[in-house]
Design a protein around this nucleic acid. Structure first.
Length: 338
DNA sequence: AAACTCTTCAACCGCTATAGC
DNA sequence: AGCTATAGCGGTTGAAGAGTT
């Protein structure tokens, strides 16, 4: 009762659309607009069900659709969002790729990205290591990639929490972080919750970028010495590097500049592997986490690398997006990874 | 050049969510 | 509150083209 009969049941046409049908649908929508898909086919003179017309319009005839090969930027956005949101959020992905249809994104994920991740030894569903991959001749390479995929997945979860927590703690602790800039003789800092900075880390997307231009054979040597600790590098264009970091006892404020350092992440804090002490990032020099993270989720159509520097105007919109996303997302304790 | 296999992607299916009565 | 109509989503299918033998 509740469902409208399908095309088959009412004897309507199915299958590939003809140019003539397209023309009829376009002409009708241009004149009357779309909506009320149930009655539209009859009024437009089409032997199709409304659902078929709606899909044809949404996935093919709509004038603002971008066609052709996906760009690296688009691929990265899809992977990033898939890692965070999973399969059931194609609609969210289309909001970041407004000129691509959900069907196109879904197809591209299934036929290209999923396959490529699998080839790299990464489970496209969990973004984690596929056990059997370790048995292959490229075991070290695939293990490294998988390791990074797990870190990426864990990082995304942690970052989502950071946003949430930052909404609660960022203002009260701003003054404390400023104390860090004072000379060593000032009062010791209290232990603060992690500030909403984005720790630099290896990024699976960087590997993906490499895959665009290099074969696995070419890039595998880079990861031969990959260790269980995060390898921080300022060379990654996606990372925002804090200019200073310091111990919680304020005994030193250590500039890191271009120096590569290895740290552990424990409970969302950056840990010194030698002293096992906690670093606090300099909030004055680090963009808010929301700003740095949402830089990974650009609506970049038509925007070149040169434009990125003046792209700050979107941050407010993106903050709102991620706030909404977090409000709709629950992060159980079991999901905590650090 | 023919037969076969693989890949891609438009279109469909079946389900859920939601609005309106 | 319950029913119906409609929109929209994820999963799947199959035709067509590309690639391989």
């Amino acid at each position: 009762m509740g469902r409208s009969p399908c095309c088959e049941k009412v004897g309507l046409k199915k299958g590939t659309w003809t140019a003539e049908e397209d023309q009829k649908l376009l002409a009708y929508i241009e004149e009357h607009g779309y909506g009320s898909w149930k009655t539209l086919p009859a009024r437009a003179g089409l032997q199709r069900c409304g659902k078929s017309c709606r899909l044809r319009w949404a996935n093919y005839l709509r004038p603002d659709i971008k066609r052709g090969k996906f760009s690296l930027q688009e691929e990265q956005t899809i992977i990033q969002l898939h890692a965070l949101l999973g399969n059931r959020k194609k609609k969210k992905e289309t909001t970041h790729l407004p000129k691509r249809t959900d069907n196109e994104i879904k197809n591209y994920w299934n036929t290209h990205i999923k396959k490529k991740l699998t080839k790299m030894g990464i489970d496209p569903v969990t973004h984690k290591l596929k056990i059997h991959a370790l048995c292959t001749s490229q075991s070290k390479y695939t293990a490294n990639l998988s390791h990074m995929a797990q870190w990426e997945s864990a990082r995304l979860e942690a970052e989502a929490r950071f946003i949430h927590e930052s909404k609660l703690v960022s203002k009260p602790y701003h003054s404390q972080s400023q104390v860090q800039l004072l000379p060593k003789a000032t009062a010791p800092l209290p232990l603060a919750p992690p500030l909403p900075s984005r720790p630099p880390c290896l990024d699976i997307l960087s590997v993906w970028t490499g895959e665009w231009t290099k074969s696995a054979k070419d890039i595998s040597p880079i990861f031969n010495d990959f260790s269980p600790t995060l390898n921080f590098s300022s060379k990654n264009k996606f990372n925002t590097i804090p200019t200073t970091i310091g111990h919680t006892d304020n005994s030193s404020i250590m500039p890191i500049g271009d120096v590569e350092n290895s740290f552990h992440m424990i409970n969302g804090r950056i840990m010194d592997p030698i002293n096992d002490s906690i670093y606090i990032t300099d909030a004055l020099n680090v963009p808010s986490f929301v700003e740095s993270f949402t830089d990974l989720l650009p609506n970049m159509d038509g925007i070149t690398d040169n434009d990125v520097g003046s792209y700050d105007g979107r941050s407010e919109e993106n903050k709102n997006y991620w706030n909404n996303e977090l409000n709709s997302m629950t992060l159980p304790m079991s999901a905590r990874v650090f």
